[in-house]
Nucleic acid binder design. Sequence first.
DNA 1: TCTAGAAATGTTACAGCATAACATATGGAG
DNA 2: CTCCATATGTTATGCTGTAACATTTCTAGA
Lengths: 163, 163
Amino acid sequence: MDPLGFEHHDHRRCVAAALAAAEAHCERHRLNLTPVRRRVLELLLEGHRAMGAYDILDHLRAEGLGAQPPVAYRALDFLVRHGFAHKIERLNAFIACTHPETDHTPAFLICRGCHAVAEAHAEPTRGMLGRAAADLGFEIEEAMVEALGRCPNCREAEAAPCA
Amino acid sequence: MDPLGFEHHDHRRCVAAALAAAEAHCERHRLNLTPVRRRVLELLLEGHRAMGAYDILDHLRAEGLGAQPPVAYRALDFLVRHGFAHKIERLNAFIACTHPETDHTPAFLICRGCHAVAEAHAEPTRGMLGRAAADLGFEIEEAMVEALGRCPNCREAEAAPCA
DNA sequence: TCTAGAAATGTTACAGCATAACATATGGAG
DNA sequence: CTCCATATGTTATGCTGTAACATTTCTAGA
């Protein structure tokens, strides 16, 4: 049930709740959650994984919501700008934010095996990076942290291939 | 003179030293630093900034060292695999490593103003990310840290535009 | 020395990711 | 009602990256 991790959970419910929260947030902040934008967010939430812009576009096309790349990219841009989704640079892909509202620097744990992605918090500004930046006089405005590795499910599958 | 930072320094010397070190390292480890690979490393060192694969390729072409993308990508791949260069995902670009030999997780400070890039150390495995990964049972194999912001030079230029 | 294999390079062709530029529509403020 | 800002639609193109196969080069072993 933990949306941060690799466990199974009640997916319909988590999608619905996230969408409702996004709607409320847009209402409060006078943001225009148009049909395309809403649908793209829904697709990301349903997919519950990192999706390429062209994956998204395929769905939009099939639903008559837009046939050209810019349509998908603009919607994704809106979602990322307002914290409803993140871009994962390492994958050239996008994923719904698992804890919008809270201001955060996301850190992604990307499984090499099943390509699942978990979102954790990071505070790269503290610790070595912050100190290095301060020493150099560099002002960090935005940071991204992405880790590649093995999720517990894939590690288990590897350890016990005959189970 | 500090190769980690945004300061000016004796560039010819730093290029020559880095190249010599790379040659020695390849010698010791029976790695094949071919002319193309060596030249690509040299280009990265001379450029002293993040360079796209196609920037590199343009130089190689002009020098008759290879005309097609795979030539550049293969050389870059070799350099990255063996720690002589890093890929900066955020920029789809490559940069010479400023402290090869030492085993490290690089963290990049990318200036939005002048696009200079400094390389710092990071240990994302310690701290919040490591704890989150441990909690989830995720095994981190490789991590990437990239920060966007302002280097001291650009901050100064911004603060005193008439100076 | 000859030869088989590994490693590196060369080349074609294409796949995947992203945006510039311009046209059209839609919705609210004055 | 008109103007402006915002959003969408579309064309075209540019940048990033790789699969697949041919050729060359080097080296280890028969």
